[in-house]
């Protein structure tokens, strides 16, 4: 059983939902990422989504774009991100790590080289934002051969036919983008999300994570009521931006945000 599957199975047995925070690797510095990953696990993160910085993050909003720019200024490349995961695995062999990023750095490394190195480093899943399944066959196959899950996005605009196609290509979990827009945008409509999730559940038995627009404990709890996992990105990365001039405060801020989300999520249904 993969680490992702094991984690969801364990959570299900406890009637709990997964909390998946996102950070951009190498922001604010290369050596802060691994300690931050451990701190997030302690604060209640079930899966870590680790962003691979890219120069042109077209699907992200200003907060994550700025995080990419800070990481790139530190010279962080895909190979460095894999090294961070390897280092994280020295102490934590249970928390799944999903890489989230764009295709071009993976193309440059070569799909099969990347898939093998990702598995060796201890990566559990890869979400390539700009790679729909239509174009993703080769990378998905390379990942599957190494036992790494290919995580795909679903959107409010996805038709039923597309939902079926994407769920067939996906493994680990699927990631529903809760609103039309970029990461960190606007507020989400929980009812609309609930309706779409019903449609997705009829197409797959994979766990469903929901992200985009989850800002605080109450939105996290609202999504935890209807989804299997809550993904929180820009709200976390905003702390990196706010405390850029006092980087030693970032960890405490992130931990307190995640702790409040964890508590609110664990209170639902109790």
């Amino acid at each position: 059983m993969s680490r992702i599957q094991a984690r969801f199975t364990a959570l299900q047995a406890q009637s709990r939902k997964a909390l998946i925070p996102y950070i951009t690797a190498g922001d604010p510095r290369s050596d802060t990422t691994v300690p931050m990953m451990h701190a997030m696990v302690t604060a209640g993160a079930d899966i870590i989504e680790l962003g691979v910085p890219f120069s042109d993050p077209m699907a992200d909003g200003p907060v994550i774009q700025a995080a990419c720019e800070r990481a790139l200024a530190n010279g962080v490349a895909l190979s460095d991100v894999l090294a961070m995961v390897r280092s994280f695995r020295e102490e934590d062999t249970e928390t799944p790590v999903v890489l989230m990023g764009y295709l071009n750095p993976i193309e440059v490394m070569d799909y099969s080289v990347f898939a093998r190195q990702a598995r060796e480093a201890g990566v559990d899943g890869v979400l390539t934002v700009d790679l729909p399944p239509e174009e993703g066959y080769q990378l998905t196959t390379a990942l599957q051969e190494e036992g790494v899950d290919a995580v795909f996005l679903l959107a409010p605009t996805s038709t039923e036919a597309r939902i079926a196609k994407i769920c067939a290509a996906a493994s680990g979990f699927v990631y529903y983008v809760s609103l039309k827009g970029v990461t960190g945008a606007a507020t989400l409509d929980v009812e609309e999300v609930r309706n779409k999730l019903a449609l997705i559940r009829s197409a797959t038995s994979l766990p469903i994570g929901v992200g985009f627009g989850i800002k605080d404990a109450s939105t996290a709890a609202a999504i935890a009521e209807i989804a299997d996992a809550v993904v929180v990105g820009s709200a976390v990365v905003k702390k990196f931006e706010q405390y850029a001039s006092a980087p030693n405060k970032i960890e405490g801020e992130v931990v307190s945000l995640l702790t409040s989300m964890r508590q609110a999520m664990d209170q639902i249904g109790h």
Partner: peptide
């Protein structure tokens, strides 16, 4: 039909834009 010119072209976008 998928927008490919040999090995080039295609549709490499986030899911939200696939339907539009």
């Amino acid at each position: 039909e998928n927008g490919h010119f040999g090995a080039y072209g295609g549709r490499f976008v986030a899911e939200t834009l696939m339907a539009p």
